[in-house]
């Protein structure tokens, strides 16, 4: 079994000149599931964007180390090839581009053989409850929210990264799709050859129960204010964020700033 480590160290980042992340420390090892929970505007989507290298975010300090190598200087595609993956909250529609072609290019770019790709894609598609007829449709075009998330999970399963950030995988998902997607991710974390390490950004316990999160981190105003085991998520559900931060820190006055890079961030989250 291959063991890998993703270390986020003192990460400080800004969007549109406004500092959103104020020093994040987080270490994830292969097979672990870490949840990041936080109120709107806490910087959850910014964190996922900065780790993956989405343009428009400025890193002001800190490191993101994958097996000891800092990936922050790499473009997104190099980070993906190195083993990072982002399951997007709002996957882009790419007209006229088929998933099979994207997977073929993604495999080729990693030097992986595309022999038998179509068959694997088909069986993964069926396994995740994604309609195989949708494979012939352009990427995410005219897909429902649930279909998009099944599609995202399918790509994660195909590409087999070392670490995945799930940015609100559970938003826009019905209960069946949530179960199918989270079970697939959970199975990947138990893969005997290369167990997937996960950072799950979420508002809900339900996903964490399905994923069996071992570590909970509570993010407020760009800082992790509490860490613990699954019991922390229960406490959060019972008591709300007020137990972890002052009303001033929870004020949503800076929430729109997190959207400045073009993501919808938490606009539609509950």
């Amino acid at each position: 079994m291959k063991q890998h480590t993703l270390e986020i160290k003192g990460l400080v980042a800004a969007v549109g000149g406004k500092q959103i992340l104020n020093g994040i420390d987080l270490t994830v090892r292969s097979g672990e599931v870490h949840a990041i929970m936080g109120p709107n505007g806490a910087g959850k989507t910014t964190l996922s964007s900065v780790v993956m290298g989405r343009p428009g975010y400025e890193v002001l300090g800190g490191q993101v180390l994958l097996d000891g190598e800092d990936v922050l200087a790499l473009p997104a595609w190099r980070r993906a090839q190195a083993g990072l993956h982002l399951v997007m909250q709002y996957p882009s529609e790419v007209p006229g581009v088929m998933l099979a072609d994207v997977m073929g290019e993604a495999f080729a770019a990693r030097g992986r053989s595309t022999d038998g790709l179509a068959g694997v894609l088909r069986s993964e598609t069926e396994g995740i409850g994604f309609n195989t007829a949708l494979l012939d449709r352009a990427l995410n075009v005219d897909l429902s929210g649930g279909e998009k998330k099944r599609n995202e999970t399918l790509q994660l399963a195909m590409l087999r990264p070392k670490f995945a950030i799930l940015d609100e995988l559970d938003s826009g998902l019905d209960i069946d799709a949530l179960r199918d997607c989270s079970r697939r991710v959970e199975a990947l974390t138990n893969d005997p050859d290369q167990p997937l390490g996960v950072i799950a950004i979420t508002h809900y316990n339900r996903l964490l129960e399905e994923l069996r999160a071992d570590h909970i981190h509570i993010l407020v105003k760009g800082r992790i204010v509490a860490e613990g085991g699954p019991e922390l998520a229960d406490q959060l559900e019972r008591d709300g964020y007020e137990a972890f931060a002052s009303p001033a820190e929870l004020a949503a006055d800076d929430a729109p700033a997190a959207d400045a890079a073009g993501a919808y961030d938490d606009l539609f989250a509950l």
Binding site: P55, W77, S92, V102, E105, A106, Q155, G262
Partner: peptide
């Protein structure tokens, strides 16, 4: 840009 980033985040080089 979002379409480009989406594909690049899958490990696909910019020209592809």
């Amino acid at each position: 840009d979002e379409q480009r980033f989406y594909l690049e985040s899958r490990g696909i080089p910019p020209e592809v």
